[in-house]
Design a protein around this nucleic acid. Structure first.
Length: 421
RNA sequence: GGAGACUUCGCCUAGUCUGGUCUAUGGCGCCGCACUGCUAAUGCGGUUGGGGUUUUACCGCCCCUCCCGGGUUCGAAUCCCGGAGUCUCCGCCA
């Protein structure tokens, strides 16, 4: 939810943001109107309620005949107050609707436009020159890293088993991520992956992405698509006592996505799957520190990418492709030799105070006032990373080189050789 | 799954039976001031959160907030109904 004070003080700033995103400007006026209506309703109610309380106070010490007149008026008032209160509730609901319809105000400098209007900030590392290119499926099955057929047999399409070196690669990668997170002072967290509707809603995943989410109807719980959800809801309805330094977590969890509407896209292999594992960074900080913190998270993502020795580029995602919560988003995309294209490996979002306002996460500033915190998130490692790792480190005989940083997790091996199945 | 107890302004707690004087008690903690040459101790004062109004700079005034949502009533922390959470016991499964 955007800041209503900003909306009232500078509605043009919000309109400009909507334009950059390619979204409706009239939504801004809808919210302004709804806010005004709400305030009017509140004033009506409060005036009546004040009178009711005044008269009620006189009741116990009123003389018998005075009491009769009082009673007549207060009875009347009781009905009016009740009606006015209903008016407030209705106006609040209407404002909330209008409020939720407006995505976060984009950060200055975000490229305008849609999915294809990103700006490439830099490209790091050398694309490998390969005489013969095998894709990750051929390589992974060759070295016995995963079993797609049995994944499909047991659970359906877009499921897989990680086996042998594949399981070790993933565990090593995630542990490497946790080790790095610890180095930088983040608190490692293994969160619940089933959450209540309000937690899912608070993080904004039941809006445009509702169809992406698995729901357990019998228990009214949702499977999270990222540990961002339980990490963001972790401090919901809290006032953080000290936020002079950002509070940072590194969540390790399985993630579940329905991938509805992605039929035919990356159907083979482990690029786009229903279940994967991820280490996700999550940061709470003061709003004025958020942009700086965002670059810090991006830096930590790049540090991880360097450790696994993958060529990648960094893009500044265009406004129309940000999602509702983010004010700015940087993606790191790995080079994929088999497809001669880039594949998203990490994504870091600065949600400013938008998400915290929904989840009611606040902090106390120097003057003792409570203010909404800023929240940010960013990817440190996922199952998907195995794809460019296999492809970029492949050798002509179908074996795969192990980056130095991961070798300890694979029993010291520096090459994974093809195995007979 | 069944039964019961509980949920009060950071923490603990009084108040609920017997509705109005609850504008919610006390302690701890925290903040400020005073005092003693420092510390400690003591004394005094302050300390839930949200919203409205004055276009929040401040002060003030008002409304809401005693787990949440309804209801009864002129009036609800207090009575009634529903829900959530915590704990205890029983059952079941590990």
């Amino acid at each position: 939810m955007i800041d209503l004070r900003l909306l009232r003080d500078d509605p043009d700033a919000v309109r400009a943001s909507q334009r950059t995103r390619g979204e409706s400007e009239s939504a801004v006026d809808d919210l302004l109107r709804a806010n005004e209506a709400r305030r009017a309703a509140v004033q009506r109610f409060e005036a009546l309620r004040a009178e009711q309380k005044q008269l009620g106070k006189r009741m116990p010490k009123a003389a018998p005949e005075e009491r009769a007149t009082l009673l007549a008026r207060t009875k009347e008032l009781a009905a009016e107050v009740k009606a006015a209160e209903a008016g407030v509730t209705a106006a609040e609901q209407e404002q909330r609707q209008a409020h939720l319809a407006i995505p976060n105000v984009v950060e200055p400098g975000v490229p305008a436009g849609g999915e294809d209007d990103y700006v490439v900030l830099r490209e790091i590392g050398e694309r490998p020159s390969l005489p013969t290119v095998r894709d990750h499926i051929e390589l992974g099955e060759g070295i016995g890293a995963f079993d797609l057929e049995r994944g499909a047999k047991v659970s359906g399409s877009r499921f897989y088993y990680l086996t042998g070196v594949g399981a070790l690669l993933q565990l090593g990668l995630l542990q490497l991520a946790i080790a790095q997170a610890l180095e930088h002072g983040l608190t490692p967290v293994i969160p619940p992956v089933l959450v209540k509707p309000e937690s899912m809603e608070g993080t904004g995943f039941l809006g445009a992405h509702a169809a992406e989410v698995y729901r357990l109807e019998a228990d009214d719980l949702y499977l999270v698509g990222t540990s961002e959800v339980p990490l963001a809801a972790y401090h919901a309805h809290e006032i953080l006592a000290d936020l002079t330094e950002p509070i940072r977590y590194a969540g390790w969890s399985s993630c579940f996505r329905r991938e509805a509407g992605s039929y035919g896209k990356d159907v083979r292999g482990i690029i786009r799957v229903h279940q994967f594992d991820k280490v996700e960074m999550f940061s709470y900080c003061r709003p004025e520190q958020a942009a700086e913190e965002h670059l810090r998270l991006l830096g930590w993502e790049e540090e991880m990418l360097a450790k696994v020795e993958i060529p990648y580029r960094v893009i500044d995602v265009a406004a129309g492709d940000l999602g509702s919560s983010a004010a700015r988003k940087y993606d790191c995309e790995a080079w994929l030799p088999s497809q001669q294209r880039f594949l998203e490996l990490t994504s870091t979002s600065n949600c400013t105070t938008f998400q915290a306002r929904r989840l009611n996460v606040r902090y106390r500033d120097e003057e003792g006032r409570t203010r909404p915190a800023a929240t940010l998130n960013g990817t440190l490692a996922t199952t998907r990373w195995l794809v460019p790792m296999l492809e970029n480190h492949q050798q002509p005989d179908g074996s795969v080189r192990v980056p130095k940083a991961l070798q300890p997790y694979l029993g010291g091996r520096d090459v994974l050789e093809p195995v007979r199945r």
